[in-house]
Design a protein around this nucleic acid. Structure first.
Lengths: 212, 212
DNA sequence: CGCAGATGTATCGAACCGATACATCCGCAG
DNA sequence: CTGCGGATGTATCGGTTCGATACATCTGCG
């Protein structure tokens, strides 16, 4: 009812504004830098989202400094409200299937610094089983139709599989790293320190509740 | 006005139906197998697209065999019309910026077997410069904000960069391969032979036609 | 028999993109 | 000083696709 606010943009915006107040243009740049190669939001979604968040009282326009010329209004700087912070915390606590899909995972990961260790682990494992599930289905489909595909299609499959296998290895390292760092100490006061990434080959632990 | 037909689904559907007539359900499976890990269309886009294509006369419902029970109508098998083939050829000839974006490239590549060598090369090179452009912008942005990012964000950036660099290397190999094979001989009559694509070790020659 | 799971067709709202349109600010060449 | 191009900045519109859902049929199996 209140506008476009079910997607990942909400988290992305609230998460960004949590650091410091920003206006739309800057917000977009920050966001797309933050997400690197994973995602790039456009104004076509950003501005409607800002309006909806404003409308719901999760963000407000920041007061301009008093020395501003009266009739002038150019930048519109947004900042989080108390309700916005609450909502952000709520979003960062969740770890449903919507956290480890392709479009969402990068965003969740980008805010791992503000996410509880337990949630981080669930998301990483969820992402991993999602990918392994996909690997399975593609591999079996490939085995059944092997000789019917032309070389280009085959090459596409091969590259795709390799890429995903690579991401799974990456996730394994991250999960190992999380587990090692997790039980070490319990200090919720400081901003959660990421346990630095170490490498190891194939690790296989069971995963929490795959799909649906 | 004719419905959802500007996207990649049109090419995907026409390209798939070019091989053999199919009904929706099977079409989707074929498509998602074809595209491997790159993409997965849903019914929510597939059926509207089929309706639009039908509406435009690019595909038709295939006549059921005469021995079908009268009142029964379950599967709806679609096949390409002459106009559809024409349109497909038109789509396969184009090579605009829309060919090398993330969502489109995989689909274009999947049908390289039916694409002219020159077009293939343009698409591969377009994709490559698109990715390099992105690498540049992320790398410079990273250099400017290096110390402001937490470890998780940094790790995300690192992984993203590595993935894209990997894809660029892949493209380089493909482009080399295309160029080598291109000037070798000139035979437009036969279905375009892919120039020596990387082979994979696993041979699985059995499994005689289990699918229907 | 009955029922679970694959097959099969279909729709709706929500999310997001790409293009586009403007307006303002600022450095700098003429 | 002027004007002009490019970055900054706000905003919308149409169109594509997803995710969830609904429902009907066919098929193997205990």
């Amino acid at each position: 009812m209140t506008g476009p606010r079910g997607g990942m943009l909400e988290l992305a915006v609230l998460g960004s504004l949590h650091e410091t107040p920003l206006h739309g243009y800057e917000l977009r740049k920050r966001l797309n830098t933050l997400l690197g190669m994973f995602r790039a939001f456009s104004y076509g979604s950003l501005y409607p989202c800002l309006r909806a968040l404003l409308n719901d009282g999760l963000i407000t326009e920041e007061e301009p400094p008093a020395d501003t010329v009266i009739g002038r209004r150019s930048k519109i700087v947004y900042k989080l409200t108390a309700e916005g912070k609450e909502r952000l915390h709520e979003l960062l606590t969740q770890s449903g299937p919507s956290s480890w899909e392709d479009e969402s995972f990068g965003i969740r990961f980008a805010f791992f610094g503000h996410t509880e260790a337990e949630v981080r682990l669930r998301i990483l494992e969820g992402r991993r089983s999602r990918l392994e599930e996909r690997l399975d289905s593609v591999r079996t489909a490939l085995a059944r139709t092997r000789e019917r595909l032309d070389s280009y299609t085959l090459e596409l499959q091969r590259h795709g599989l390799e890429s995903v296998e690579r991401e799974v290895r990456w996730l394994n390292e991250l999960i190992d790293s999380e587990r090692r760092g997790a039980t070490a100490r319990e200090d919720p006061s400081t901003t959660t320190e990421p346990p630095h990434v170490v490498q190891d080959g194939t690790k296989r632990a069971d995963t929490p509740e795959a799909d649906k």
